[in-house]
Design a protein around this nucleic acid. Structure first.
Lengths: 228, 228
DNA sequence: GCAAAAGTGTTCCCCCTACACCCATGA
DNA sequence: TCATGGGTGTAGGGGGAACACTTTTGC
């Protein structure tokens, strides 16, 4: 009944970001076969027959980065790429998705085939296919969305301190933020974070209250980047 | 040399918006053949072999709405849609683009096969395929982008008054804006609009200065929607 | 005590809002 | 002269930036 009219391979590509050692980092996989054998590339794979695009992205994400991304992380469509010749094997459209994950301990460790790379150290031409451009687009999307959405908390574990959330913003934007103003801003924005009543202990300095993600998705007013 | 590994038809779909009679309106075409024969749908078509996605979108736009969209309008990728079953003919991914055009006189008149519909009158289930959802996504993107970009001017002819630009914002957002504050805001934002030195004549009231689009793309600070 | 980190208060300034007011034209 | 729309001035308020200050822990 379904007639194959198509000439395109459709794949999903994943820009998976997290904060490791205070640096915004992307998950990359090393290609095991041509084309671009041995080069780093974005995780991803072909969309299966009868599979919806978000499902394919979620399946690839679960396979690459563990299964709990729906608990605290975030997954959204980024953009599509179809420039002729981008895949030497033939016409191919990649629908890219952006995933934001907390780092420890859900995120798997580096292996020979998959590793986290600080985005500032990924050379603009180093990745396979047109993945350098896709990665750059994903990073820029993440930077922009922190301003007007509550997605910064997607990088945090289920319970986190305001300082942890601030370190997310500082890592993604690459700027220092005033801890006092950041604290007031976050806690005074309705439904951004909700206090749990629990507190950190055993660390330097005064204990900090733990918070969870609130139900808000859009921030009014937004968090503004100092630079621009 | 290029091996066809594909099972997908890839098409581009266009959400083409303009302001007609003070209302945000979308260009729709009436399908001449099954599936959904006789139903209104978004303009679009299949991506040709060797053609890049933006080129395909621009070609379809030129074919449907005249050729000068690059002069004053705007074209950007919106999102991709690939839910199984969305096209009864088989697996199909549509990469949707959003186009913003000035209305008179570049925009063609309505015909039996293509007509402008105020978006507020397009029923949520009336369009072919999943085009109602794509249209809704495009309208929401346009509403959001007016806030923090200079794209409002893409709806205006090459030379326009501040009042014309204000009517664009009012039509897209569906709210009334204070003409005095809007004027000050627009003219005081660097590089948003640049005065031509020419003035309107022959109309009611005091003549208004004519402006062109400025080189700015992002607005600092943004224009804020009154409602939220 | 000292360093370090959490959290509060305060001041200044910019921008947004609202609205009074003046200007320039057509009828 | 009146109506209509273009454009400027000004007062009030909310939020952000900067930073002094207090609180509570580890060492």
């Amino acid at each position: 009944m379904a007639i194959n009219r198509g000439g395109f391979t459709v794949t999903v590509g994943l820009v998976v970001l997290t904060i490791r050692d205070g640096r915004l980092s992307a998950l990359l996989v090393k290609r095991a076969e041509p084309p671009y054998e041995g080069r780093w590339a974005l995780p991803g794979g072909t969309v299966r027959p009868g599979e919806d695009l978000p499902d394919a992205a979620g399946r690839e994400l679960a396979g690459q980065a563990g299964g709990d991304e729906h608990a605290t992380g975030h997954l959204e469509q980024l953009a599509s790429y179809g420039t002729p010749g981008r895949d030497p094997r033939g016409p191919a459209v990649t629908v890219a998705y952006l995933a934001l994950l907390p780092d420890p301990p859900a995120t798997h460790r580096d292996t020979d085939a998959a590793a986290w790379h600080p985005v500032s150290t990924v050379d603009g031409e180093a990745l396979a296919f047109d993945h350098s451009r896709i990665l750059a687009d994903g990073v820029e999307r993440a930077r922009a969305k922190l301003e007007y959405s509550s997605l910064g908390a997607a990088f945090c574990p289920p319970e986190f301190t305001i300082a942890q959330l601030r370190e997310v913003y500082e890592a993604v934007w690459g700027t220092a933020l005033d801890p006092r103003n950041f604290h007031r801003k976050v806690t005074s924005t309705a439904n951004f974070v909700v206090p749990t009543g629990r507190w950190t202990a055993g660390e330097r300095g005064r204990p900090a209250q733990l918070y969870r993600r609130g139900p808000a998705t859009l921030l009014h007013p937004p968090m503004l980047r100092p630079g621009a």
